[in-house]
């Protein structure tokens, strides 16, 4: 997004909030739709009491641990599957069968095995976010020009050197495409795994669930806004890391 579009986006958000506020002040929309002023002051109260941060922290812990696992396992296994043909063939049927499953359906099963715990949630988030990263990495390795590998071999590089110095950097643009999808999914599943199942502990999804039970839509808006903010922020961070690592690549997202 260039500067001009950013300006337009800012104007649009302000106009939308103004319309929302106006409709709420004139009482043209039902009271449960709250108003920006009420949501804002509620958010401020939660920030001051620190409640928002403790909830956000435990949500973030779940999604970031899973994302770390996805990054490590997805990239390592993806490169192995792309580079060594037998490994690729071994994993292909698992990917074909498991990838289209809505992983959220596994939540009740995992809940019985591991309890309503962080293990369950982290595992579920990991299972969802793993496949985009794995598939993108594997595609990226397949897309590396054979000439590069031959050149490295010619100059006496070992297998490990080829993987580390040629294959990994050359497939990084694709890997980042996959990671971006995975990151988005971790936040979706973070919210879903907290929403479904009983409500105990901390987390932004729980905040929504509790607010829902109490009929406090203003609190729901606060948590939704915070989840959106976190999703947006971490996407930006990933894009910044990508721009730094891939300064040589043409398409920097």
């Amino acid at each position: 997004m260039d500067k001009r579009l950013q300006k337009i986006a800012a104007i649009e958000i302000v106009v939308l909030l103004a319309i929302w506020q106006a409709l709420a002040s004139l009482e043209w929309i039902p009271a449960y739709l709250s108003s920006p002023y009420v949501v804002g002051s509620e958010m401020w109260a939660l920030i001051v009491s620190g409640e928002l941060f403790t909830n956000a922290a435990s949500s973030l812990y779940r999604s970031l641990v899973s994302f770390l696992l996805v990054m490590v396992l997805g990239i390592v296994l993806g490169i192995a599957a792309g580079f060594f043909k037998p490994v690729g063939i071994f994993f292909q049927p698992i990917v074909d069968v498991l990838n289209p499953v809505p992983k959220i359906a596994l939540l009740p099963i995992l809940m019985v095995w591991f309890g309503i715990s962080d293990t369950t949630r982290i595992l579920l988030i990991f299972l969802t976010a793993f496949f985009p990263c794995f598939i993108a990495t594997k595609d990226g390795v397949h897309g590396v020009k054979q000439v590069f590998v031959w050149a490295a071999e010619n100059m006496g590089a070992s297998k490990f050197q080829i993987l580390w110095k040629v294959i990994l950097p050359a497939s990084l643009p694709k890997i980042f495409d996959g990671l971006r999808v995975s990151l988005g999914l971790t936040f979706v599943m973070m919210f879903s795994s907290e929403m479904i199942g009983s409500s105990n502990g901390l987390g932004l999804g729980f905040m929504i669930l509790l607010a829902d039970m109490a009929g406090r839509t203003d609190l729901m808006f606060v948590s939704v806004f915070f989840i959106a903010l976190l999703g947006f922020l971490f996407d930006r961070i990933l894009l910044a890391v990508r721009a730094r690592l891939l300064w040589w690549s043409e398409n920097r997202g």
């Binding site: 997004m1 337009i8 986006a9 929403m195 729901m220 808006f221």
Partner: peptide, 17 residues
């Protein structure tokens, strides 16, 4: 701008509302 801003946001969170 709406689509660029909305793309990375977990939109399902809006469901309860």
């Amino acid at each position: 701008p709406i689509f660029s801003l909305g793309f990375p946001i977990p939109r399902v969170a809006l469901y309860p509302i």
